[in-house]
Design a protein around this nucleic acid. Structure first.
Length: 191
DNA sequence: TAGGCCATCTGGTCCT
DNA sequence: AGGACCAGATGGCCTA
């Protein structure tokens, strides 16, 4: 994986097409109350009025030949609101990714982990912590009474059920830590 | 320049 | 019915 260290991306405000008032691109004035500054930088010419929906191909975007003029105002307004909600949703998702990055120890503090790197490291970090806890507690959850081995058995069943292909040997913390360590180094090296 | 990553738009589907 | 969620499409930015 290549290393990346770029500032938060801000799209250049592209004004390829002057939105005609009234015809409206879907990109209206964005209040953007979120943490991110208002995307005045939205680049894309809004396709608000992508042709009438339907038409096969999974219903994905189909820039109709008609252009933005073809949609009713109420429909355009709904689309704008929907776009805004979707942006906010994605911002929340990205915030969650950022929060996750901040709790995963890794050796690339100077470079932002990509989303896939974040998820992969998090998964292995959790596994290594789980294995460590299991070992240190001999299969018992700290402070809990009861048959300890059940936790260990449950863990192994999970590994098998999820296709983790982690045998008992990998339930050892060393195995996970080794894997985790290898991974963060491979990310650092950009491999 | 190619490839990776990302933000955004958009329509379909699911859920409340 | 409306919002949340999902995934395809598109295009910008960055690095090798």
């Amino acid at each position: 994986m290549k290393t990346k260290n770029r500032p938060p991306r801000r799209r250049a405000p592209v004004q390829d097409t002057e939105p005609t008032p009234g015809e409206g691109t879907l990109d209206g004035p964005l209040p953007s109350p979120g943490p991110e500054p208002a995307k005045s930088l939205r680049s894309r010419p809004a396709r608000a009025a992508a042709g009438p929906r339907g038409g096969g191909d999974g219903g994905r975007r189909r820039p109709g030949p008609s252009g933005p003029g073809g949609r009713r105002d109420s429909s355009i307004q709904r689309r704008l609101e929907s776009n805004e909600r979707e942006r906010q949703r994605m911002h929340k998702l990205n915030n969650a990714f950022q929060a996750l990055r901040e709790v995963i120890p890794h050796v690339r503090a100077d470079k932002k982990l990509s989303k896939i790197e974040t998820l992969t490291l998090a998964k292995n970090y959790i596994k290594s912590l789980t294995a460590t806890i299991l070992t240190m507690s001999s299969g018992r959850l700290p402070g809990l009474e009861g048959p300890g081995p059940k936790l260990y058995q449950h863990y192994q069943q999970q590994q098998q059920a999820t296709g983790g292909a982690l045998g008992a040997i990998e339930a050892q913390p060393q195995g996970h830590l080794q894997r985790y360590s290898t991974q963060i180094h491979s990310f650092r090296e950009g491999t």
